[in-house]
């Protein structure tokens, strides 16, 4: 899908109304769908193009770091995983075979490193993850301390429930629910079939529902 095919008619129709709006692409820019653009970028990175590398960093660094942080529950280790993932992008892009999408390739590299780290640190405790609590706070607009406190408690409880899931279920839920990957993309990252993915997601959501049952009734009460 070409973004310009949406932008050009919109410019023609709206004319001056769009003049003050800065669009992400200059008019007339041909922008292909993200997957093929990712592929072109990876191929350019393979030829040593640092600008293409930067584009992929801008596109995926946040998601990769967030994914690793969710799996490892350790911000420092998540950053190391992100660094290693992009180092491998830079050094191995020349050998990338476009059987998989670049996006799922990067997530798979990150996930494999997370698994290695989880194996290594079984006996160690992870540092707490400093995550923004935007989702809990941003939407409120209400300043009742008790309500804010309750929301923070809910957020914390949900985080604990996610951490308590087995790694594969947590990875599946993180990819699909938090990173917005499609089922097919999550299957590529986890190297499993769609049936297996659905099974992981179902078991994961069931586990979360059980752990959070008291919160669900709390929220139902809050809504009424």
């Amino acid at each position: 899908m070409l973004v310009s095919s949406y932008i050009a008619p919109a410019r023609a129709t709206l004319g001056p109304a769009l003049s003050g709006i800065e669009l992400p692409y200059p008019s007339g820019t041909r922008v292909t769908d993200p997957t093929s653009d990712d592929l072109a970028c990876v191929q350019s990175v393979g030829r040593g193009d640092a600008r293409a590398y930067r584009r992929l960093v801008d596109r995926y660094l946040l998601g990769i770091t967030r994914f690793a942080a969710r799996i490892l529950n350790d911000a420092g280790e998540a950053e190391e995983v992100a660094q290693e993932t992009f180092l491998r992008l830079w050094t191995e892009a020349a050998g990338f075979e476009p059987r998989a999408q670049p996006k799922t390739w990067l997530y798979r590299i990150a996930r494999n490193q997370c698994i290695d780290r989880l194996r290594k640190r079984r006996t160690r405790g992870g540092a707490a993850l400093p995550l923004d609590e935007g989702a809990a706070d941003a939407s409120s607009g209400e300043d009742r301390p008790s309500l804010l406190f309750a929301r923070k408690q809910t957020a914390l409880r949900v985080e604990q429930a996610l951490d308590a899931l087995p790694e594969r279920q947590r990875a599946a839920i993180t990819l699909v629910h938090y990173e917005g990957l499609s089922g097919a993309e999550a299957c590529e990252v986890l190297e499993i079939s769609l049936e297996a993915l659905e099974s992981l997601l179902t078991r994961g959501r069931r586990g979360l529902r059980e752990q959070l049952s008291e919160l669900q009734s709390f929220r139902a009460g809050e809504g009424s």
Binding site: L131, D132, A136, Q216
Partner: peptide
């Protein structure tokens, strides 16, 4: 109702600037 709860989990909304700088430095 479960989705609403899941959406309340803390999340990272931006990458630490130092991390981004280190990663952009990798080619150099």
């Amino acid at each position: 109702s479960l989705d609403v709860l899941l959406a309340s989990a803390p999340t990272m909304n931006e990458v630490p600037a130092a991390l981004r700088a280190r990663i952009l430095e990798i080619p150099v």
